[in-house]
Nucleic acid binder design. Structure first.
Lengths: 237, 237
DNA sequence: CTGTCTATCTATAAATC
DNA sequence: TGATTTATAGATAGACA
């Protein structure tokens, strides 16, 4: 997270990996210490690296053993219940992630179209070579949207200045259908056109795991261990 | 760590503590995931909060059990050896932390004196009401230092411009003893004067644990669990 | 309580010593 | 190998919807 953004994937270079390992190990243990201190909770962390014979732990080996003993001492029924809870939790995450993805796609599409729109204004003409019907439709919706906004602004401006301009002098707004927003509609209508990067399914899949885990928006690569984006982590023994 | 810098101490406000807990829990688990992915190492994290019946874990309950089983399966001799190693490691940290602290005190003192010096230049006089003998001595050293630097600059300027000015025209440098730099000297000479904040022993003590843990420069408060700054964490069962 | 925003603070990748 | 420096990415406190 500095100088350059690093892809979240196994670091091939040995020296770089060791350097990163040492830095991040220190930081991870610090974070464990901080949440424990700030929130007054028990926490522990264990890291097995190839560089030390024994795992690095926080806060101390015996304390880790104590925390873990507590966990393992739970009746198996409760542990199973916990795992089920976690699975439910993960499923909720999936739903939320999907919603968020949909919203992101919509937002991105709108941004793309805004750029296109600005280019049209600047060039004075519409370069439509690599635009799909869907995109053209969306662009039309955006222009309609902007015209409506302009109309509103004119109206309030008129109100503020008590100008005599009446509705016949105002912009004629041509109603257009709202833009397609779901992935299914996009896909169905996208035949034979160059797809814009935002529709790339690979990128969407790579986001899956981290959205799941962190509810974040990272564009990271598939994580260590070749997680299949279509399969939930197996939470049962 | 935003908007305001937060003291690393138990958060008294319940709502704020829970908010912080949830945010930091998520981040901590993410960090565990990242180091595992980037460096290809086994890692696990466990957090016991008062908000969930079961601890939050990464990567999964069964995986945590597996990692911890590995640790507990080690012969007791090796675990003890590890603890001793860690104690040695901590002792080294103590020494490094002390060195760093000493350097920081020196640097801070110099910065304070620079500010004072600038104020003198600006006001045209020395306001010495709440200055100790030590500070005055240090200020003298600083001024001497600056005069020497001025002399050097004049010399090189003369060299560059082939000016005929000789040494009798240059500044007369009054040699002064070097400033005291150890805490003992400072304390011994600091009777009856208002101590500057940098000499406050509490601040120094509060830094102790984090310097120990992280080799960092934090000015954090004493951590959760009332760690005695003068005593190393007990690493034996 | 959950998500969003944003100003700040922290972590850290790279380069250098 | 480890410490320092620097510039950028990430984490997050506080306020708000």
């Amino acid at each position: 997270m500095a100088r350059t953004k690093v892809k979240l994937a196994f670091i091939v270079n040995d020296a770089a990996r060791k350097t990163t390992y040492n830095k991040r190990k220190k930081s991870l243990l610090k974070k464990a210490y901080e949440i424990s201190t700030l929130c007054g909770v028990q926490a522990c962390a264990v890291i097995y690296g190839p560089y030390e014979a024994q795992p690095e732990v926080w806060p101390s080996p015996c304390e880790v053993q104590r925390v873990l003993s507590n966990f393992r001492a739970k009746p198996e029924v409760i542990q199973t219940k916990q795992m089920e809870n976690q699975e439910t939790f993960m499923n909720q995450r999936v739903l939320k992630a999907k919603d968020k993805l949909k919203k992101l796609r919509t937002d991105n599409k709108e941004k793309e179209m805004t750029v296109l729109f600005d280019q049209c204004i600047y060039a004075g003409k519409l370069v439509k070579n690599d635009m799909s019907v869907v995109d053209l439709n969306y662009l039309g919706w955006l222009i309609d949207h902007k015209l409506k906004d302009l109309g509103r602004r004119l109206e309030s401006w008129d109100d503020c200045n008590n100008v005599q301009i009446q509705s016949q002098d105002q912009l004629q707004l041509v109603p257009l259908p709202p833009p397609p927003s779901t992935n299914e509609e996009m896909t169905m209508m996208n035949h034979g056109h160059v797809a814009l990067p935002i529709n790339n399914t690979d990128i969407i899949e790579r986001e899956f795991f981290m959205n799941l885990m962190m509810n974040g928006d990272g564009d990271d690569t598939i994580p260590f261990g070749e997680v299949d984006p279509g399969v939930l982590p197996n939470l049962l023994p």
